Amino acid sequence: MSMDQTIAVASAFAGINVVLLTVLTVIWLRNYRTFRTPLILGLVAFAVVMLLENATALYFFFSMKMFYGNAPSVQQAVAVLRGMQFVALLFLTWVTLK
C-alpha cells in the first residue's frame, strides 16, 4: 500500500469514528437528560474527548501530510490504531443502540 493510500485509510477511519462518536454523544446526552446519572455524564465526556481527538487527527491528516511522508511505518501504525479504534467504537455503538 502506498503512503498516500495509508493516510487515506487512516483518514477514512477517523472520519467514520467522528460519525460514530457523534451518534453516541447524541444518544448519551438524551439519556443523561432523562436519568441524570454520573455514569452517563462520564460517557458523554468520553465521547466528546474522543470526538475532538479524531477531528484533530483529520485536521493533521489533511493539512500536514509531510509529518507522515517520510515514515511509512508511522503511517501504517497510525492506520492500524485508527482501525482498532473504529472496531471498538463500532461495538460500543452497536451495544448502545440495542
Rank of each mutant, 00 (worst) to 15 (best):
A14W: 07
N54P: 04
V19C: 06
Q85D: 14
F60I: 06
F46E: 09
A71I: 02
M84R: 15
L24N: 08
Q75P: 00
Y68W: 09
P38W: 08
Q5N: 11
V78L: 09
P72C: 05
V18A: 05
N31D: 12
R30Y: 03
V18R: 06
S2P: 03
L97W: 09
T22S: 14
V18G: 08
Y32V: 07
A8P: 00
A10R: 07
M84P: 02
L24T: 00
I7C: 03
N17Y: 10
L41D: 02
I27P: 00
V74H: 09
A14F: 10
Q5S: 03
K65S: 07
V80R: 15
L81H: 12
K98V: 07
T56C: 13
A55I: 15
I16W: 14
F35W: 10
A79Q: 06
V44N: 07
I16T: 13
G69P: 00
I27N: 00
E53G: 00
I40A: 05
I7E: 01
V49E: 12
T93H: 10
L92R: 13
K98D: 07
R36P: 00
M1Y: 15
M1T: 14
P72K: 08
L52R: 02
M1I: 12
T56S: 11
M64W: 08
L81E: 13
E53C: 04
W28M: 06
I40R: 09
L58N: 07
L89H: 12
G42Q: 01
L58A: 06
L92N: 12
R30C: 05
A12H: 15
T6K: 11
L21H: 08
V9D: 10
T25R: 08
T34S: 08
T34F: 04
A47Y: 11
W94P: 07
G83W: 10
W28R: 07
W94Q: 14
A45P: 05
P72S: 04
G15E: 15
L58V: 08
V49W: 11
A10D: 04
Y68F: 06
F35C: 10
V95G: 03
A77S: 06
F46G: 05
